[in-house]
Design a protein around this nucleic acid. Structure first.
Lengths: 257, 257
DNA sequence: CTTGACCCCTACGTGGCGTGAGGCGGCACG
DNA sequence: CGTGCCGCCTCACGCCACGTAGGGGTCAAG
């Protein structure tokens, strides 16, 4: 049963990394195999492999090897803060990538329609969704992260009864969006904007501060998510877009007035 | 109006990159500023900035600088195939990142509950979601991509009238899930499983082949997306999870029988 | 006893910058 | 008119996480 000793090549294949990588980890002392054969072959045990899996996990999260070494060395340093940080980085990246997929879709759509986008048009898109993003990202995402904290905090305080109530509020709002959309009413119709306003107030009361700007960026994220075909796009294709438009129309109406 | 000439520092700030990066791009001839001032200062024009934006776009997609150079050089290579490829890369990455976020959440949850995961437990997670992922990723993602093609193909054929019909089907199904959840009926109740089965048939008829396995992985993606707080979680928190559970219960019932 | 796959180690290469060092250019303030 | 001080310039070396090449031992099968 203790015959679980593997040579580099085997381990490499199992873990999906190169032999050189294992050599490297050995060199820098990040993962030294338990033993060597009489002929100098590295012999990895099951424990080693498990350590390797942890290493690869953190590597995938974009920790550099020194950080990983620290994590492995001090079991307590896998601390919550660190994980939160990584979570934030990941979700930021996901959001950016989703926006980029939306971009690609836009380009593809234009192409299949035979409309080659002018450089200008293309750059507007890049400008607003990639670069501006890059510039203001930190700020935006911080506020975004803040919202999340707030939301979590409040959510944790609700009872099962509260949740039932909240859900019924939500389902009513949701249904009204759906009905309007199915009836063919444009998202910019005042009655639909009213629903958007209710949606905003609902979020504000139940979850987190939600001014018009915040509401707008939430709408963006609905949209970004719809583009990759997740969301409840399966349940109601176009609904994300519809709600998004309504929210924006409402925000404009309210901030102009 | 032609006063749009910017020095490195300005451009760097605008684009959210370092001055050194711009120097580097100049060095390797990837982005050479249109001109220089009499004193040797790099002067970037609006066009240069737009090129930079494209560069950063592709960089975000993990193209190396040589590949980017090629793309920029050959206008025809911004072609549909390439975009499709990039779309796939992006969505794959999004999926992986989302899975990783879910992983982090799991770890965080365990920690706040004071349950330090045993190495064993942790490795089950790693095994299934990271390493196995590494091994079978290509295959999985291909089949996933297939569904998408099918879906798009079919979706493009529907008329506005069709869509109206489809939406009403969907909204009925959606509403039934919501009602059941609000009524406190467990997701594993046969009546709810029936809704899940209808959902599956709906997808199958309207969008793409959808056997129980496919349905299950769709359920997973709903869930993965809920974890990052997007989706219609704002509209109905817990609904993703509820539908997910119903789908799984239904799939089990059907494949066992 | 050969063959071919696998292992060892040494050592240099690479990509995409970061990080000085040493020295001009420009301009606001005293 | 000097004098900071910031921003720009050009070398040029450093860094990380490996890739790659090369010369040579090892192991199991035929």
């Amino acid at each position: 049963m203790n015959a679980e000793e593997y040579t580099v090549g085997v381990v490499a294949k199992m873990a999906g990394v190169s032999v050189r990588t294992l050599h490297h980890y050995d060199e820098i002392g990040l993962l030294e195999p338990e033993g060597r054969s009489s002929t100098g072959y590295r012999l990895y045990t099951g424990d080693d492999i498990r350590t390797l899996q942890r290493i690869l996990f953190y590597r995938e999260l974009d920790f550099d090897l020194e950080a990983i070494r620290a994590i492995l060395a001090d079991p307590a340093s896998t601390d919550v803060d660190l994980l939160h940080r990584q979570r934030r980085l990941l979700t930021e990246r996901v959001a950016r990538h989703q926006a980029m997929v939306a971009l690609i879709d836009k380009e593809l759509n234009a192409r299949t329609l035979g409309i080659t986008l002018t450089p200008q048009e293309r750059l507007e898109v890049f400008g607003s969704s990639v670069l501006e993003d890059n510039a203001t990202r930190a700020e935006e995402q911080w506020s975004g992260s803040d919202l999340w904290e707030q939301r979590k905090l409040r959510a944790s305080a609700y009872s099962a009864e509260d949740w039932r109530e909240i859900r019924s509020e939500q389902s009513r709002i949701h249904q009204r969006f759906l009905d309007s959309m199915n009836a063919g009413i444009p998202a910019t119709d005042p009655t639909v904007m009213d629903v958007a306003e209710e949606h905003r107030l609902h979020l504000h009361r139940r979850f987190h501060d939600c001014d018009y700007g915040t509401h707008r960026s939430l709408a963006e994220s609905y949209l970004a998510n719809e583009r990759i075909g997740l969301n409840f796009d399966d349940v109601a294709p176009g609904l994300s877009r519809y709600i998004h438009d309504a929210i924006n129309a409402n925000a404009e109406r309210m901030t102009d007035a």
